[in-house]
Amino acid sequence: MSDFKLDPDKEYTLVLVKPDGYRRGLTGKILARIEQKGYAIVALRIVQATDDDLHEHYVEHRGKHFFESMVDFMQSGKLVAAVIEGTRVVEGVRSLVGATNPTEAAPGTIRGDYGRDYDSGQIQNLVHAADSPSSAAREIKVWFPDAC
């Protein structure tokens, strides 16, 4: 994997550029927006997600009506996992990402500028960002187990 280790005195979040973002060639633009805000990308990998990865990552959604279609979408192509560091990084990155529904996401956000509804029955919104420090810690362990 890598030599990267989390520093307990720093704040981190996890970002996934989802298969739709990767397929559309938006990975660089998405990560650049995060860097332009002043956050640091401290670990990065391109991966084809497994069932185990996604069942662990989306543990809070298991059993919900959309879970299986979400897993299918997340396995529809490669994704990019990134650990981002910075002060109040979880909250800051969530603000940059924008609303879950890309049609409703404000202009100036990643989803507002690059996302749209494809009427596919799945929310294809380009990017995932952890919603809390505890979620970020758990999710980082899924995608970067050697860092923890």
Rank of each mutant, 00 (worst) to 15 (best):
D131R: 12
S135F: 04
C148M: 02
D113A: 13
D72K: 14
R45S: 07
L44P: 08
V83G: 00
S135Y: 06
E68F: 09
V83S: 00
S120F: 03
D53K: 12
V93C: 12
Q36K: 05
A136M: 12
G38C: 05
A82C: 10
L54N: 03
K5S: 05
F66I: 07
R88N: 15
Q75W: 04
A129L: 13
S132L: 11
G92E: 09
Q36A: 05
V142F: 07
P8G: 04
G98H: 14
H65L: 08
V42K: 14
Q122I: 07
R62Q: 15
K29A: 09
M74D: 03
A105Q: 05
I30G: 03
D72M: 02
S95I: 10
Y58H: 06
L96H: 08
T50W: 09
M1S: 03
E139F: 11
Q48I: 03
K64M: 11
G38P: 05
K18Q: 02
S132E: 09
Q75C: 10
G112L: 10
R111D: 09
G112T: 11
D117Y: 15
I123W: 14
T27M: 02
E139C: 08
R111T: 09
G112C: 11
S76F: 05
T13D: 02
D53T: 06
F67K: 06
A129E: 12
R88F: 12
K5P: 01
E104R: 15
S76M: 09
K78E: 00
V15A: 03
T100I: 14
D131P: 14
V17M: 01
D52P: 04
A49K: 02
D119L: 08
K10N: 03
W143H: 05
I110F: 03
Y118H: 13
A99W: 06
C148H: 12
Q48G: 11
A130S: 15
V80G: 08
Q75A: 07
R94V: 10
R138P: 10
A136S: 13
A130V: 14
Q48A: 08
T27F: 02
L126Y: 02
D7M: 11
L31G: 00
S135E: 07
T27Q: 02
S135C: 09
D9N: 04
L14G: 00
P145M: 06
A147F: 13
S132I: 14
S69G: 04
L31P: 06
E139K: 10
Q122S: 10
F144C: 02
M74C: 04
M70K: 15
S69W: 04
A130P: 12
V47S: 05
V83L: 04
A99M: 11
A43I: 00
A129D: 15
A32W: 05
E35Q: 07
A49I: 01
I46D: 01
V83Y: 01
P107C: 13
E56K: 08
I30Y: 08
I46T: 11
E11Q: 15
L6K: 14
A129V: 14
T13W: 03
A106E: 12
D7C: 09
V83N: 05
K141P: 05
K18C: 01
G38V: 10
A40P: 07
I110W: 03
L96N: 14
T100D: 06
G38Q: 12
P107T: 11
T50S: 12
I41Y: 00
E68G: 08
E139L: 14
T87P: 12
